[in-house]
Design a protein around this nucleic acid. Sequence first.
DNA 1: TTTGATGATTCGTA
DNA 2: TACGAATCATCAAA
Length: 370
Amino acid sequence: MITVSSGDPCSIPDVLGEQLKRTGLSSSRSAYWNDRKHALSCHRMKPALFSVLCEIKEKTVLSIHGVQEEGPPSAQLMRLDNMLLAEGVSRLERRGRGGSAAAASAATPGGCPNDNSLEHSDYRAKLSQIRQIYHSELEKYEQACREFTTHVTNLLQEQSRMRPVSPKEIERMVGVIHGKFNAIQMQLKQSTCEAVMTLRSRFLDARRKRRNFSKQATEVLNEYFYSHLSNPYPSEEAKEELARKGGITVSQVSNWFGNKRIRYKKNMGKFQEEATIYTTKMAVDTTKVGGLGSQASCPSTPSSGSSGPFPLTSAGDALITLQTLTSLRPAPVGGGLQSQARGGWQGAAPPASTTSPAGDLSSVNSDASN
DNA sequence: TTTGATGATTCGTA
DNA sequence: TACGAATCATCAAA
């Protein structure tokens, strides 16, 4: 009885000989293996050996049949692909190295704010970096996969001269190789997704990127707030103007006023000094301009008039009083503002944006000029 | 490191 | 839909 190991010893010298030839290492050893190979192929037992190998092969193929079925691409892989596509990472596929920079700068990740802040450009640069690394690694894996597949295919074809190797078997082996490389690719995709997620959370989470407003923005907002203390609800137009002057967005203006109203109401005592500063400043500005020009520093509300939902004994009036008093003595505005504010917008429903606050500077100015 | 200030977000409401 | 209230997360000064 002839026993043959699954390693198929007959083919080994053959393959080695070929490899030695390819790598230029053929020498006396190569000649030795060629002799051996020739001896084996001419051996009188070769047909018997080959038939035994065929039998073994048949059994082996039967035993592994059913295990080799390749399932559909996993849901996880699809999720990763979708995520990379959504993040703009896998858009460059098959585009080559040249177009990566342009495409990187053009790509806008989903959910990304469309402002042109420095953080945003930094985000894009880092995303582009991740994208380039991803594609470079992907290309490496694909090339390695191709090379390995070719190598194994050649190997099996060589072996098929000495042992039974069916095209199906080669196909299966190629499938196995692709499966292994796909697993590696999935890891690459997974880590790329993680990197993108980390980047997103770091750069795009608004809470993380919170920056204090510039001094100018704060001043513009405070000036408006304290000069409209009786009705600190800027209209859309006023918000836009404040946003423009402060170099911030309209929604930031809205946020600021929302926070300011709440915090002022909660702790008016704390804001007395600030109120004094700003109302004094506004009063001085108004006096300087002669009662007509203060609109330049304080956006007006859409309409004017004192028929708003708040009593005239408001902070707006306090400002008027203050303007008069400023020229006479240091402004003792604090208590007045506080008491008036308490009876003003606090607790009252916010007025429609089109209504004009009693303390609107335009009306103040006209009053003052009168 | 702690703490107050502050911009942003979320949720309920009118 | 805008607002108030509560809360979160970060900044910056002590």
